[in-house]
Simulated scan of single mutants.
Amino acid sequence: MHSETYSTQYRDACLALFDSNVGKYFAPSERADFIEFLDNQAAQGHYLVFIESGKVVACGGVAASDDSEDATKPAHSAFCWGMVRHDLHGKGLGSELTQQRLDLVVKLGLPSQVRMETSQHTEGFYARFGFEAVEREKDGFAPGIDKVVMTMELANH
């Protein structure tokens, strides 16, 4: 398995990854937001695709915060749209994707506080890396999918 920077040739494969996780991890209504991200931000940013045997099996990225208008939020890096093909959960791909994204934050010199929005279904997974829940909204993404904001300070790890 290897990772590559996203390009539009991976768009359909990334959408298939998203679709494989709809229900428990993503709401169907989030698909339009993911398409918008792929079409307008992923190729300009630091979005990775993981390829195994010629197939995209995971994707996810990082970005510097764009909260300059909100002085209450410190500068931070953000994890964006991370996912592993549903039938490959539990095989270490998520851990590898998370570690590569953390390494990318350091390599790019992005702010050391990393922030993400995830669900209660993956909160425990990210906690193993040192992320802590700082906000929680029941059904924040969709019924049955809570919105959990998690942060981690890389200087502590």
Rank of each mutant, 00 (worst) to 15 (best):
Y25S: 00
P28V: 09
A71M: 12
A64C: 10
L93R: 08
G61S: 04
E135A: 15
T118R: 00
K55W: 05
D139M: 12
S65Y: 11
F79A: 06
H46L: 13
V134P: 08
Q9L: 13
L88D: 07
P143N: 10
D139R: 04
A13E: 07
F79P: 00
D70G: 10
S119T: 09
L102Q: 14
S119V: 02
D146R: 00
Q120T: 00
M150E: 03
K147T: 08
R11A: 13
R11V: 08
L102T: 05
A42G: 09
E132T: 15
F26T: 01
A127V: 01
D87Y: 07
Y47W: 15
Y126V: 01
T151V: 15
F129A: 06
E123D: 11
P74G: 09
I35H: 05
A155L: 12
A155C: 07
G130F: 07
D39I: 09
K138Y: 00
D67N: 14
E52D: 11
P74V: 01
E69L: 13
P111C: 14
I35K: 13
V134G: 02
S20Q: 02
D19T: 07
G92N: 08
V62C: 07
A43T: 10
H46D: 15
M83P: 04
L38V: 02
L93S: 11
A32L: 14
V62I: 10
V114Y: 02
A64L: 01
R11P: 07
R101S: 10
Q99R: 10
V62R: 03
A63Y: 14
Y25T: 00
A32F: 05
F79S: 05
T151K: 12
D87M: 07
P74L: 09
T72N: 14
S65D: 13
R115G: 02
A75Q: 06
M83S: 03
I145Y: 03
G45M: 10
L88W: 15
L15I: 10
R31A: 08
Y10R: 07
P143V: 01
F129L: 04
E96C: 12
P111Y: 12
T98Q: 14
A133Y: 12
E123W: 08
H46T: 13
F129S: 05
I51M: 05
S95F: 15
R115Q: 13
K107S: 01
G92T: 06
C14S: 10
S112F: 13
D39F: 10
K55H: 15
L154P: 11
R136P: 00
A16L: 07
A32D: 14
D12Q: 09
E123G: 04
L93K: 04
I35P: 10
D103H: 12
E30T: 04
L15D: 08
G23F: 00
K147P: 05
A63W: 09
S20C: 00
D33W: 09
S53F: 11
Y47V: 00
F141S: 01
F18M: 03
A42I: 15
G45T: 06
Q44S: 13
I145W: 01
F34K: 03
D66N: 11
S68I: 09
E153A: 11
W81Y: 14
E96L: 11
L154V: 10
G60C: 14
G140V: 06
Q44H: 14
R101V: 03
R128H: 11
L88Q: 05
L17H: 01
V106P: 09
S77N: 01
S119F: 03
R136H: 13
M83H: 02
E132W: 11
F26V: 00
V57T: 14
